[in-house]
């Protein structure tokens, strides 16, 4: 069974003018088909306004489809009785680290989710410790979130989701507001989590580099899924990606230019080492 499955998913909202009169319908998502198997790492790429965040919000039932269906762990997100179990199955990490931390102390924030689920007190403490340990923030447990760096805050937010023991984590541009150090920190944490806990990870981003290790990549534009495949397949279509205003990783870009220049370099190079090897083979 798929962890996340979408069929003909449509999301429309009313467009209003300044007086609040409806002047038309906006289709933010159009006939989306999505299949994510348990344990997979899926990256959803897209430029601003491509509908990728709207799609992410459907996975947590913050938005429900106006047409078609979204299933999370086999549960229909439209069903209000399933709301809590959908939200527990698919934890969500948002973009702004400041606006998603509720507690005034790190450990209290991590405990917020389990508290809401009605988990007994001793179990909450165990989960908080486990969550903080798995993002490497255990030593900061009694700190105030205000004193942490952006990357650290984001790791606390991830720990807060882990403490709810979800099967799947949806990260909605978790690195967009971070500096390069914070970005690396968060991505490394996500990778380690995947290895250790075998959770499904869905990463929404507009940084292509973050999608290199994904099992599957979806590219969105104007509410449609326009490309779909493994990172290698996707990144070998450089011109197409550029048309969707996405920046291809520098290495891939360089390899593409070299290939166009007549050198015998394979398509879809993702890492620096691969390019080095390919160039070495040339001579």
């Amino acid at each position: 069974m798929e962890m996340i499955r979408a069929r003909e998913l449509v999301y429309e909202y009313e467009q209003r003018d300044d007086e609040g009169n409806v002047i038309g319908m906006n289709r933010a998502l159009d006939e989306i088909e999505l299949d994510v198997r348990p344990g997979q790492f899926v990256a959803i790429l897209g430029h601003n306004g491509s509908g990728k965040s709207t799609l992410a919000k459907h996975m947590n039932a913050i938005l429900v489809p106006t047409g078609g269906t979204m299933w999370v762990n086999g549960r229909d997100t439209k069903d209000p009785r399933e709301l809590m179990s959908v939200r527990q199955s698919a934890g969500m990490v948002f973009q702004n680290p400041d606006n998603q931390i509720i507690g005034t102390i790190v450990e209290e924030d991590v405990g917020f989710g389990p508290e809401n689920l009605g988990v007994p007190t001793e179990e909450i403490w165990r989960r908080v410790e486990d969550g903080l340990k798995s993002v490497g923030m255990l030593e900061y447990r009694t700190h105030s979130p205000n004193k942490l760096s952006g990357g650290q805050k984001q790791r606390v937010a991830i720990a807060g989701v882990i403490a709810m023991e979800p099967e799947c984590i949806v990260l909605d541009e978790p690195t967009a507001m971070l500096d390069p150090v914070g970005r690396k920190e968060v991505l490394r944490t996500v990778q380690e989590l995947r290895k250790r806990k075998n959770v499904t990870v869905i990463l929404i981003t507009h940084y292509m580099e973050e999608a290199i290790d994904a099992d599957a990549v979806y590219v969105m534009e104007g509410g449609h899924v326009v490309m779909q495949g493994t990172p290698r397949e996707i990144f070998s279509r450089v011109d197409e990606l550029k048309r969707y205003r996405l920046d291809v990783p520098q290495v891939t870009m360089l390899a593409e230019e070299l290939r166009k220049g007549g050198l015998d370099i394979p398509k879809g190079i993702l890492r620096r080492e691969e390019l080095v090897q390919a160039i070495c083979r040339l001579s």
């Binding site: 947590n60 939200r87 969500m92 948002f94 998603q100």
Partner: peptide
């Protein structure tokens, strides 16, 4: 944003 984040965590 905070309300969304709270709801997402089953509040």
């Amino acid at each position: 944003d905070l309300a969304l984040a709270m709801e997402a965590r089953c509040y």
